[in-house]
C-alpha cells in the first residue's frame, strides 16, 4: 500500500457546476458542488427527481465534462472515462444478444484480455453476485433483480477502485430492493471498494451509506453532508430505531 496515496482522498469534487446548453436554451443542472470522498467509503447521494444526480454520476464517470470546476480522482483530473471506475446504470444496460457470461466479459474483451482469463474472472463474479448456473442465459430471460446483478458483476470485472451506481435498484420492488442493498453491502465489504450510489430512497441511503449527500433541485445544490454513524453490519430492524429515523428526518428536511 502506498501511504502517501492513501492520505489523499480518492475523489475530490471542486466547485463543480454543470449547465446543459442546446438549441432551446440552457439549463443549470448543478450549481456549485464541492465534496471529497475517502477510500473505501460507501456514499449515497439523495435528491428529488431532476436535482442533477444522474448528471453528477456522468461527470464522475467522465462521460460528461464539467461546465465549471473540476473533479479529481487520485489527484488527477477526470476528463474522460478511465480505468479504475465501474459504473452501474439506472437501466441494467446489458447487450441482449450476449449471454450473462459474455455481458460480464465485455469490459475485459475491450481491454483485449485473453478470453479464457476473462471468462474465469467473470465466473468468479457471477458466483459473487449469486448467479451461478445462469452463465449462458440471455438477458431477456432474467428478472429485473437478476439483470442488475449482472450489471453489478460487469462493473466489478475490471476490479475498479471506485464504483458508481445510478439508482441501480430504482426499477425493483421494495423487497427485492432491500435484498439487493444487502447484497451490495456484502460485495462492498468483500471487495473493499469505494462506492458512490445515487438513490431517491432516503431510508435506503441511510441503511447503506457511511455518509449521505443530499442535493436540492433546480439547480442541484449540496444541502447536507450527513455522516451515518450506525454500527455495521446493519439489520432490517435498524430502520425503526430512533437514530435511524432521526437521520432520515434530517435528510428529508434538507431536500425539501
Amino acid at each position: 500500500m502506498n501511504s502517501v496515496n492513501n492520505q489523499q482522498p480518492l475523489l475530490e469534487v471542486k466547485k463543480l457546476g454543470v449547465t446543459y446548453t442546446d438549441e432551446k436554451g440552457s439549463l443549470q443542472a448543478i450549481n456549485e458542488i464541492s465534496f471529497s470522498v475517502e477510500r473505501e467509503q460507501f456514499i449515497c447521494v439523495v435528491g428529488p427527481s431532476g436535482s442533477g444526480k444522474s448528471t453528477l454520476i456522468r461527470i464522475l464517470s467522465g462521460l460528461l465534462a464539467p461546465t465549471t470546476g473540476a473533479v479529481f480522482l487520485d489527484g488527477s483530473e477526470i476528463k474522460k472515462p478511465r480505468q479504475g471506475v465501474g459504473i452501474v446504470f439506472q437501466k441494467a444496460n446489458l447487450m441482449p444478444w450476449r449471454s450473462v457470461l459474455r455481458n460480464i466479459t465485455l469490459p475485459l474483451e475491450i481491454k483485449s484480455v485473453p478470453i479464457k482469463e476473462a471468462e474465469s474472472k467473470a465466473r468468479e463474479l457471477i458466483e459473487l453476485v449469486g448467479l451461478k448456473g445462469f452463465e449462458d442465459w440471455l438477458p431477456q430471460d432474467l428478472s429485473g433483480g437478476m439483470l442488475q446483478r449482472v450489471a453489478i458483476a460487469r462493473s466489478l470485472v475490471q476490479d475498479p477502485e471506485l464504483l458508481l451506481l445510478d439508482e441501480p435498484f430504482g426499477a425493483l420492488d421494495a423487497l427485492t430492493r432491500e435484498k439487493m442493498g444487502a447484497e451490495l453491502l456484502r460485495i462492498w465489504r468483500a471487495r473493499k471498494k469505494t462506492v458512490i450510489m445515487i438513490t431517491h430512497d432516503i431510508s435506503e441511503a441511510v441503511f447503506l451509506a457511511d455518509r449521505v449527500l443530499a442535493i436540492s433541485p433546480q439547480p442541484g445544490n449540496l444541502r447536507l453532508d450527513l455522516k451515518v454513524d450506525l454500527e455495521r453490519p446493519r439489520h432490517e430492524e435498524d430502520r425503526f430505531t430512533p437514530e435511524f429515523v432521526g437521520l432520515t428526518q434530517q435528510l428529508r428536511e434538507a431536500i425539501e
Binding site: 464517470s61 467522465g62 462521460l63 472515462p81 478511465r82 480505468q83 471506475v85 459504473i87 446504470f89 444496460n93 447487450m95 465485455l106 469490459p107 475491450i110
Partner: peptide, 9 residues
C-alpha cells in the same frame, strides 16, 4: 449502450 461502450473506453 453507446454510453456503456464509451465508459468502457
Amino acid at each position: 449502450l453507446y454510453e456503456l461502450m464509451r465508459s468502457l473506453q
